[in-house]
């Protein structure tokens, strides 16, 4: 091995280690694996059954029943991102998004003030929603929060929420185009 090649070896090793550390960090930043997979499975099974029940209730025009079923889910113990990973947070955002959609579209059914709806939206989003891998459920819930803010005449905040949701959807579109080029 030449003297120059020996001199460049530490630099090359450093670059290799740095690249590996970066890849691992990006992987962890993108999708957090659940720390308690058994609870994620239990949560997934529970919500699958509940979504089917809500589907049936909506088909029967029992909006109040559907809202009550989804509202009841709020009381259950949700997994945080550390325990349930990104998938648990997405499942929560899905339930809260569905609940808020039904409430906003049916304001006369079991009416709730807009301020209370905003609390529900914030409760559903949690503090960690920006860290979760971009997904449609989080984007929708962020947009629904914008709709509630609009009802509260907080138009600037509503626009911020909409733009946040649109940005998430833009990321999803770009991801879709990368995976399935036109």
């Amino acid at each position: 091995m030449s003297r120059r090649a020996r001199g460049m070896l530490p630099v090359a090793l450093g670059m290799l280690l740095g690249a590996l550390a970066m890849l691992v960090g990006l992987a962890q930043a993108g999708r957090l694996a659940p720390g308690q997979p058994d609870k994620v499975v239990a949560l997934g099974q529970l919500l699958d059954a509940e979504h089917r029940r809500v589907d049936l209730l909506v088909e029967r025009d029992d909006v109040a029943g559907a809202i009550a079923a989804l509202d009841a889910l709020r009381e259950q113990q949700w997994l945080d991102r550390e325990s349930g990973g990104d998938v648990a947070v997405q499942l929560r955002h899905d339930v809260y998004g569905r609940l808020l959609r039904l409430r906003i579209d049916n304001p006369k059914v079991a009416p709730v003030p807009a301020a209370a709806l905003l609390d529900i939206a914030d409760e559903g989003l949690g503090e960690e929603y920006r860290d979760v891998d971009t997904n449609p459920f989080t984007a929708r819930l962020a947009a629904l929060r914008g709709e509630i803010l609009e009802q509260l005449d907080r138009d600037d905040d509503a626009l911020t929420a909409y733009e946040e949701a649109l940005e998430m959807n833009r990321v999803l579109l770009e991801r879709e185009l990368e995976e399935n080029p036109p």
């Binding site: 929708r140 609009e150 626009l159």
Partner: peptide, 12 residues
């Protein structure tokens, strides 16, 4: 904002 909300819902 109304159009934005509708657009996002359609995207969803």
């Amino acid at each position: 904002p109304g159009v934005m909300a509708a657009t996002i819902e359609a995207q969803f």
